[in-house]
Amino acid sequence: MPEPLLTPWTKSRPLPPYKAVLAVDAKDFTGLPAVLHAPVSQMIPELVDQALTKAGLTGVQHDKRFPANTGDGIVFGFDPAHLPFVVWPFLNVLDEVLGRYNALSVGPRIRLRASVHVGPLPDEGRPGDGNATPRNDTHRLLDSRPVKAVLAASSEQTTHLAAILSDRVYEDVVLGGYTALHPDRCIEVPATVEGKPFAQRAWLFIPSPSGSLFRSGVLGLDIPREPQATDPTGSAAGPAEQAGTNYRGNRQEVSDGVAIIGDVTGNISHQNGATHYNATNQHWGSGDNVSGTKNVGAPGEQR
Score class of each variant (00 low, 15 high):
202 A>T: 10
225 R>P: 01
42 Q>K: 14
302 Q>V: 15
126 R>Y: 03
49 D>W: 03
126 R>W: 02
11 K>I: 08
67 P>G: 12
245 T>W: 10
196 K>W: 06
65 R>N: 01
207 P>D: 08
230 T>L: 09
239 P>M: 03
173 V>N: 02
134 P>L: 11
31 G>V: 00
13 R>F: 13
281 N>D: 14
2 P>N: 05
203 W>M: 03
35 V>N: 06
95 D>N: 14
177 G>F: 03
71 G>F: 05
54 K>E: 15
164 I>K: 01
37 H>W: 15
191 A>M: 05
148 K>H: 12
177 G>D: 08
74 I>D: 11
48 V>G: 02
107 G>H: 09
269 S>I: 10
188 E>S: 13
6 L>G: 12
151 L>V: 11
207 P>K: 06
102 N>G: 10
30 T>R: 06
70 T>A: 10
283 H>F: 07
92 N>K: 13
58 T>L: 08
100 R>K: 14
209 P>T: 02
297 G>Y: 11
290 V>W: 08
187 I>P: 02
202 A>W: 04
66 F>R: 00
167 D>F: 01
244 G>H: 05
25 D>V: 05
265 T>M: 03
183 P>F: 08
232 P>D: 07
222 D>K: 08
151 L>F: 09
255 S>V: 13
181 L>H: 04
128 G>C: 11
126 R>V: 14
252 Q>A: 15
85 F>N: 08
35 V>T: 09
154 S>G: 07
200 Q>G: 01
118 V>D: 02
251 R>L: 10
177 G>V: 07
264 V>Y: 03
77 G>M: 05
108 P>R: 10
32 L>M: 10
208 S>T: 15
76 F>G: 09
202 A>H: 06
222 D>M: 05
86 V>I: 15
240 A>T: 09
296 V>Q: 09
204 L>Y: 01
208 S>V: 08
83 L>S: 15
204 L>R: 02
141 L>C: 05
279 A>V: 14
278 N>E: 15
213 L>V: 07
291 S>L: 12
303 R>Q: 05
60 V>P: 00
64 K>V: 06
90 F>G: 04
98 L>M: 12
186 C>D: 06
